[in-house]
Structure formats: C-alpha cells, structure tokens
Design a protein around this nucleic acid. Sequence first.
RNA 1: GCCGGGAUGGUGGAAUUGGUAGACGCGCCGGACUCAAAAUCCGGUGCCAGCAAUGGCGUGAGGGUUCAAGUCCCUCUCCCGGCACCA
Length: 862
Amino acid sequence: MQENYSHSSIEKKCQAKWRDSKVFEVNEGSDKPKMYCMPMLPYPSGKLHMGHVRNYTITDVLARFYKLSGYNVLHTIGWDAFGLPAENAAMKSKVAPAAWTYQNIANMKAQLENMGLSFDWSREIATCTPEYYHWQQWLFVQLYKNGVIYRKSGVVNWDPVDQTVLANEQVIDGKGWRSGATVEKKEIPMYYFGITQYAEQLLADLEQLDGWPEQVRTMQKNWIGKSRGMEVTFAGAGAHDGLTVFTTRPDTLMGVTYVAISAEHPLAEVAVANKPELAEFIQECKLGGVSEAELATQEKKGMFSGLYVIHPLTNEQVPVWIANYVLMNYGTGAVMAVPSHDERDFEFATKYALTKKVVIKPVKDTDDYQPETTAYTDYGILVNSGKYDGMTFEQVFAALETELAEKNIGQVKTNYRLRDWGISRQRYWGCPIPIIHCEHCGDVPVPEQDLPVRLPEDLIPDGSGNPLNKDERFTKCVCPNCGADARRETDTMDTFVDSSWYFLRYTCPDSHNAMLDERVKYWAPVDQYVGGIEHAILHLLYARFFYKALRDLGLVAGDEPFKNLLTQGMVLAETFYRQNPNGSKDWFSPMDIEVVKDGKGNIIKATYKGDGMEVQYGGIEKMSKSKNNGIDPDEIISQYGADTARLFVMFASPPEQTLDWSDSGIEGANRFIRRIWRMVFEHTQQGVVAKYTTGDLTTEQKKLRTQLHQTIAKVTNDVGVRKQFNTAIAAIMELLNAYSKVAFVGDNGRALSQEVLEAVIIMLSPIAPHVCEVLWSELCPDSELLEQAWVVVDPKALDVDEVEMIIQVNGKLRGKIMVAKSLTKEQIEEMAKQNPNVQKFIDGQVIKKIIVVPNKLINIVV
RNA sequence: GCCGGGAUGGUGGAAUUGGUAGACGCGCCGGACUCAAAAUCCGGUGCCAGCAAUGGCGUGAGGGUUCAAGUCCCUCUCCCGGCACCA
C-alpha cells in the first residue's frame, strides 16, 4: 500500500473494474427486493455543471447504499436530447442539431464516467433516436384514437420580423430576442393532450404520494386549482346574446358594477362592429407575449365596449368592458367585476372611475375594514344586497343555487385552473407528430406499421420558422386512407412529452416490438426519483398524467410513477453579461470573470479576463446553458479526484437546499480523504487483524466503541431515512477525530481499530466509492467492498449508565451535571439544586416549578 | 401579480418531535516539526465586558404564545424557484 493518497492512480482503475465486471448491470431474476433509483434526465448541453454533479451524486449515494443494504438496485441515465438549445447552436455555428447533440452526449458521457457513478449503462437512452421516439409516436396514435389528443387553436408568441414562433424564454420585455421586434399573440392550430380529463385523479392521487415533499404536493394542488363556484349568465341588453361568467364568489353578485371580457372573447367582435374605435385597443391587447407572468404584471388596461348586459338579480344594465387582464383560456373568458371585493377589479375601477358597491362586511367589526380605500376580499356577512342581507357565504350560495337554476341562468360548477396541454411546437428538432393532413380525409394518424416518422437529421434551422416546412422529402406523402397526395404534419412535440415516460423505457430499452414489455411490471414504479425543485410542477405533473394514461391502456400497473421524490435545491452561480446594440445579451462564464467586491460581499466591478473590459452583473441564478453560468466539474475532478468532488458537494449543504456555488472548502474534503488513507495505512502497517467482537477494552476504547455504534445509527438514519448526507459525513468526521486520540494497545485495541475503520469505509463508500474500494482491499484482502453488507448497530455498545443533563434557571443555562440513568425525578431535581452556580440564581428566591425533560434538561422556574 | 421556498458567526452549514444555538468543515490567529517552504500535527476562534470564574447580548426586522422559540402564531423586508413554448 502506498503511504500517500493519489486519486489519479486509483479512480480510473476502479472505474474500469466496475465497467468490465458489469457489476452495476441488473436484471429481473434476483431474489432480492427491487429498488429503482433514478435522477432526472439531463439535457445534453455539452458540459456537466455542478447541478448535475449534485444530482447524480445523490442518486449514486442512495443506489450504492441500497445495494449494500441488500436490494436489487436499478440506477439509470439517459439524454433529454431534443430541444431548443440545439437549434440555437445550429443558427450560431451552422452545425446540424443532430450532430451537435450527439457530440454533446459523447462529451458529457465521458465526464459522467469520470465521476464513478453506478449507472447501468446498458440501458442508456437518448430521446432523439428513432428507437425511442418511435414508441412516443405510437402512443400518440393510441391516445389520438382514444380521444385523449385533439386539435384546436392556441395562442403563441409571434415575431413579426423573423416570421417565427418564439418560446416564452425568447421574449424579453415583450420583444423578440433576436429581432428586437415587439412580439404579438397569434392563433394557430395545435394538438392538445387532454390532461384536464385526469384533473380530478391528479389531484386526488396526491394523497397517495406520502414519499413526496409536502411543498411539491402543495404546488401541484394549487396548479390544478380546483375551485367550486357558479356559472352565471348575464343576458344581453340589446342585439346580442349576453355572456356567461364563472365566479367563486357568487356572494358578491349584488356588488357587480361591470363585466370584463377578454379581447379574444366572441362578444368583443360584436362590440367592434358597433364601435370601430375598439379595434385599435383590441389590436393593442395582441401586443406582447403570452406568458402568464407577463400578462399578470402588465399594466391593467381596458375600454368600454359600448355594450350592456342585464344583471341577473336586479335587472339593471351593467356595462361590458374589454380588459387585458382577463384570460380567454381560464373559465369562460369573462368575469363579473366586484371592485369592492376584488383587488384587481378595485384597481381597474379606480383607474377608470367605475362605480364600486360594498356588499360584504366582516362578521366581527375590525379596524382593518376600510371598503372605501381597499378591496375587502375576505368572506363575511352580506349588506346592501336586498333580501340577501345578513346571509353568510354558504347561505347565499345555497339561495342562489336554487334561484338561478329556476330561471335557468346559473348553476354550480367545479372549475380547474389546469388547462389542456398544447404539445405542438413549430420547431424542427423534436419528435415529429405522426399525423398526415389529407384534403379528403382530414387529419389521419400514421398507421402503426409506418412508424416511426423519421426526422431528417441533416437540416440546419436559420431562425425563420421550421425548416421541415420547406423539406419536401419530409412533407410529401400519400394519405393512408384514400391514397391521395397529402401533406405531413411538420410540427414536433413539446420536449416535455419525451421526458414524461423515459423512466419506463429504461426497464426495457431493447424492446423492438412494443413500447413497454413485461419487465416494466417488475421495476415500476420508480422507488426513488431525484431532481431539481424547478421541475416541481410541469415535468412531474405531465409524467404523472402519462402514467395514468398508460395505465388506462393497460401498459403499466398502479396509479403513480414516482413513489419517493427528493427535490434537490438548485446550484446557483453568478451571471455576467454584455448588452448588444439590439438589446440581446452575451453571457460570460463566471470562471472567466474577475470580480471586485465591497466589504459586504456585493459585487462592485466585474471584468472579463479575455479582454479586461467591464461586464454587467446579472444576479445569482440557477446554472444553465442559456446564462452560461455553469461551473464545469472537470477542473475539480482532475485536480482533486471524483471522490473529493462528490464528498465536497454532499458535505456542502443538505440536498433540498439551494446552493450558491463556491469552491472554498474543497481542500477540506480532500484533506479528509487523505487523512483516512493515512489512518488505514498506519493501521495495516502493523498487520491485518479480525475486527472486534468481544473482550476487555480500556475506558477510552469503550467510549470510542460507543461512539462508533452511535455513528452507525446516525449515518444509517441520515442516509437511508433523512437523506441528509452532510450530517452523515460530519458524524464520520467526528468519529475519526475521536479515533485519532485513542491508543489502540493490545489485541482487543487493534481489533477495535479494525472495527472502526471497516465501518467507516463502508459508511463512506457510497459517497467516495473509489478510495473506499481500495482501502477496503487493504483492510480485508481478498474481499470485495461491493459484496459487503451495510453496517449494523451493536446494541450492547450503546448501553451507557450516565447521561449529561443541563440545568436552566428561568430558561437560562446555568450548569451541567452527569446523572445516572437509575435516578428518580426527585433525586435529579435535588442534584440540580445543589449545583453551586445554580445556587447563585435560586438563592433567596421562591421555586415555583421544576420541569424535568428526561435525559435532557432540568428547568427551575423562580 | 399569483403559487412554493429561503434568510443562523468572517464563511458553507448543524440543532431530527418546542428543550444546551453555532456540531462538522472552510477561513483566520497562535504554536510544533523544517535551514526554509509545502504537507502534517496541537491549541484558539459568535459579539461585548472580564486575568479568570463568569455575566450580558445574539438565529433577516417588528410583535405575540410558552417554564422554554432558530423551531409555533401575526405583520413586514430582501433573496431564490415556478407561472403552461428553457429544460
């Protein structure tokens, strides 16, 4: 054994050994319980960043821990290989997205291999391969035939200069990212997945997911947004049909002073016919992007439509306004406005000097009730509402339910915020939608035997629309129904579709005759899923929806795809940019930036190392390709080794927590590994011994053994239950700090040293697998670390007869005593009162009460 | 704007169920070894007062509940994530 640790001489050897022995390749023929452990599918941006390192180290630690704990562990990886960055790269450097993507996959795979991860590489998949998207198209056809997929029009961001659809990310302050032109909303036909058909199940089954973080379940629940309310019809005053609104607050119906409709509402067209000056305003509403964040933060604007509707209770005329804050795709595209009891309506009514009518007052009078200056949005008692005065929300609701139903102008309705999922993308680098458009037969799904519809891999987008449109090789086809010349659909699928079922394909990646085969029934559901919190809603909701849809096709069993979920916090890094004349930004890697900070750590100046000129600071954000702030782990791995990199990211913070990247402290992780190496070296220099079982130990040895088994209990719980690795590592560090102070004299002493070191190596091996594998072979020659069992606690070692208790007087710490476990509460109280420092604080005082928390503290209240 | 989260020493973080705030690491200070340096080892390190024992203060801000609050409740500030076409 070498005296000093050198990562370069051991890591490559270990990785080759694991690869050649196929030790991490698994199948369904095991008698051990199965454990499917998986990180989220990465986008192949070309370079690993610390967020990836964190993600894959977490799953690897868990996978290796479960393997030692006796499970048949499946740990998988693949590539979310379709998507926008490949097209952007193509525009920039004229490389075909396919070539760019495959090159990136090769680069990142090499980086992953350097990390020593226990993936079953034989199951690797890339979503851009025909072998994969074949089955996605097949599924599309099944769902299309079952009515889960349908076609309707949807609104997109349209760049009028580049003549192309933009992603929300490409709309910056309402302008196109490349052209700088003001973006417009445009309606185009799209395919939709009917996820709302599953809204109720997606909501109800959240209850089953007790292995998920509460915050994720809450976010999904709010996203689905189930609400019970009423649909109320306002009849038209004049020559139009009126409109229907949805409201969750029918108790405020008497307070309605106007009705607001979206610019896309059918009634808006009627209004324009009577009042041509509206056209300009409706046009103005079309400017800007479609994202909800943009719509919600824009200035609220509106214009009177010239139309009136009839209030269903009072029969008074109510003006109809066209407003930019009303969303066509939520509810009915029209809202009843109650300025006194809704903040948005209040703001709008104030701006346009519209009437406000107070109809709710609080149950108990409070100072907060100022209906003249702010909207009162809480529930309360009705006032100014005629015969409804004095009623509560529930009472009015019930009264109106009957009354409106009788007149046939209103009914109770359950509404969901969740919308159907539009999956059409006017992009080239994605999974082709398997539809053929025939003049005679309409939309015809591609027959199963003609799948996959292959995406040509040699096109290079130029920023003006989808190059598939211009590629006759692709578009020209015949109708499978009637044989007439037809045109192939050129839209591709949202990449969220790709990532909604990949975890099932890992179970049978070589299945050529079916999307999934019987092996999925063995492995699914995923037992432990690990990925970024940023996926808390969209990806996880879509994957849950897919699983239910696949279940209904009989392809999988159960209701939910992910049993346990660990959402890791993002790794953030500083961002730096320079603004181009047209408003676009060039982003610089933080690794190429020289930063000057003030005393409080604020950045006051940043310069690019390449030219020494200043760059702008863009704040701390998640590491991403688009902001170019990913920190590449290669440098750390080549300098310190993968074990150090892994140990460092696991030690830096608990997994759920956001981590502002800093590499200060990485040397500490490396120092710790070198220290263990030296301890094992010194121990084995004196020959190999069997680990301690029984026999006399010195007092300090006994104490160390107690600490060893306390540490085993803590680490097992921290890794297996709490999944908090930083505290597990800290406990091992503490144990070794204690170890280094003990003299291991005698045979029993040496055996204890062996016991401690063996346990430490096993506990640390999921985190730092290479060095542990080598050290194990020194401690226990002719035995394989990966074949060992996880360490177990010896209850005898945990037996102690004395504990330390703290003494408080009025809640302040005044002393500490060692207390034998056999003592009664009264004896402990007496001992506490005798403590000299405690005496100072209770002397001459009346003791009111003494609280004793067993094995912890005594609080004397005077 | 809406939904979800976060804020603890110089610094990353610990405190698992309301019960010793600051474990463990980094940095810094001092010492040992060395011709010297690196590496390593030993000691110290929240702030204020004190030679010390010890005391006072202290978990983003303000209030509250409790014998006891980083932890629970209310109000607020700032930061991060998501908002349906980034993935």
